[in-house]
Write a protein that binds this DNA or RNA. Structure first.
Length: 473
RNA sequence: GGCCCUGUCGUCUAAUGGUCAGGACACCAGGUUUUCAUCCUGGCAAUCGGAGUUCGAUUCUCCGCAGGGUCACCA
């Protein structure tokens, strides 16, 4: 059977790096076997809806190089892919459950529910609905409905049963049904809850594998129950380790750094480096290979290799290292495109601030080849390459720093200038500069440090640069 | 608190009923070098505790301990 996976984000804010991870695994699982990857927007919570977040998310996903076969922007045979446009479908299935006696109307007020929960908490017992409305008569229900009393539809969870299912990562799992609440299926605003919508859509859209974070594990029994009541085949569940900070045992948090997938790009990370890093957040090939292109990952990814541990740590230090590695190893022209694209998109004032704007491409590439070894992120180019394009700021104290005093510095600069002036354009290259400079060094008995560091500084305005003669050339 | 899950170097992880328990990041040392960075070589360092099964357990079982997830008309 054809594998179909889906990524089901809700437009409630920014697109989390953990969601990127899930999308990546979904993508790899589907593409690894010629299957389909579906994007479905779970916008059933109107109160948390954030304008524009879907568009931003789609852009981010594309920036990272992921694509999907069906979704809100591309359509597909199971459209619509917005849950808010599928309300009648969920309603129909909820009512089917009511008819089968597997779900029931509930007219309890929020007030009563809160009080109930409070009491249960106080007593230290499991907080769950007390089934006050379970045995309402047909007449009562109809009267309430006629009176337009707000209601929800609840799942009737069977008592004293073990609900069993298999997770492809964790194996066979069993949950006592008595611990499971009579979950609301249809909210009083007519929208479905996640639990109903996800099951109905995954079934209708013929999703074969459900990949999601581990936080969903405790609600999976509810979903299994729904599949059973509808008489549908249960998909394969694949629960992924949660993400956490390295120095914390808690979930990933904004306080330590970005958690927003788009923000990493804005900060100068390469999409392929972030993607590579994210691949290993809960998966490992079991070999020593750790640099992966998307295509290679698609080939090697397998559910068996997903970690069973509770959480995978987000090691920002390692991400930075990996980004630097990509910057050093990417083809030069390609890296240049990345640098320029990044600058155009994220530099505050591109026209004014981008140092290489309008410069000769051969020159740009030469500069990039020199500074790339020092770059860990794309945003560092502008600063590292500054003096190749613009006149640097020079401070007196640094001019004299390496030779001991200003007079000596002037002498060094004059002596070398005279020598350099005699070199023709054709001979102006690293090899000649190296030879001539060292000869000059001996001629005047300068130490390498005092001469070369002084020249380095007055030419670049920096104490640390790529090798001096490369810079001069 | 109930339910469920997890426990390997400082960090992220790999592997196995018998291995010198492997790799990467970080760190340290050395080399290259006029600086910074890169690169190369080397080093450091781990199976939560206690029982049991077994010739042999880090691996399987149980208990303990620790950590995590979740208990909404949010997803």
């Amino acid at each position: 059977m054809k594998i179909r996976t889906r990524m089901a984000p809700s437009p409630t804010g920014e697109f989390h790096i953990g969601s990127l991870r899930t999308a990546l695994y979904d993508y790899a699982l589907a593409k690894g076997s010629n299957g389909d990857f579906v994007l479905r927007v779970e916008d059933t919570d109107r109160s948390r809806y954030v304008e524009g977040s879907i568009e931003r998310m789609i852009k981010t996903l594309k920036d990272y190089g992921l694509s999907w076969d069906e979704g809100p922007d591309v359509g597909g045979p199971y459209a619509p892919y917005f849950q808010s446009q599928r309300l009648e479908i969920y309603r129909k299935y909820a009512l089917e459950l009511v008819e089968k006696g597997k779900a029931y109307y509930c007219f309890c007020s929020e007030d009563r529910l809160n009080k109930l929960r409070e009491e249960q908490t106080k007593k230290g017992i499991v907080t769950k609905y007390d089934r006050f409305c379970l045995n309402l008569s047909k007449e009562e229900i109809e009267k309430n409905l006629k009176d337009k009393k707000p209601y929800v539809i609840r799942l009737k969870v069977p008592q004293n049963e073990n609900i069993e299912f298999e997770d492809m990562v964790l194996g066979k799992l069993s949950f006592p049904s008595d611990d499971i609440d009579d979950q609301v299926l249809i909210k009083s605003d007519g929208f479905p809850t996640y639990h109903l919508a996800v099951v109905v859509d995954d079934h209708l859209m013929e999703i074969t594998h459900v990949l999601r974070g581990r936080e969903w594990l405790p609600s999976t029994p509810k979903h299994v129950l729904l599949y059973k009541f509808f008489g549908w085949e249960v998909p394969k569940f694949v629960h992924l380790p949660l993400l956490r900070e390295v120095d914390s045992t808690k979930k990933l948090s904004k306080r330590t750094g970005s958690v927003n997938a788009a923000e990493f790009l804005r900060n100068g990370y390469l999409p392929e480096a972030v993607l590579n890093f994210v691949m290993f957040l809960g998966w490992n090939p079991g070999t020593e290979k750790e640099i992966y292109t998307l295509d290679e990952f698609v080939k090697d990814f397998s559910i068996e290799k997903i970690q069973t541990s509770e959480m995978a740590a987000f090691d920002r230090q390692k991400l930075l290292w990996m980004n630097g590695l990509y910057i050093r190893n990417l083809p030069l022209e390609y890296l240049w495109e990345k640098v320029e694209k990044w600058s155009r998109e994220y530099l505050e004032n591109f026209e004014e601030d981008f140092v290489a704007l309008g410069s000769d491409m051969d020159f740009n590439l030469k500069v990039l080849s020199l500074v790339r070894e020092r770059m860990k992120k794309l945003d560092e180019f502008n600063d590292l390459a500054y003096y190749f394009y613009r006149k640097p700021e020079i401070e007196k104290k640094f001019v004299e720093k390496f030779s001991g005093n200003l007079n000596k510095a002037h002498e060094i600069i004059n002596n070398f200038s005279k020598v350099y002036e005699k070199i023709s354009n054709k001979d102006w290259n690293v090899k000649n500069l190296d030879e001539i400079s060292h000869a000059t060094l001996e001629e005047f008995s300068y130490t390498p440090k005092e001469a070369f560091m002084t020249i380095r500084y007055v030419v670049t305005g920096r104490e640390s640069t790529p090798p001096l003669f490369d810079v001069l050339a």
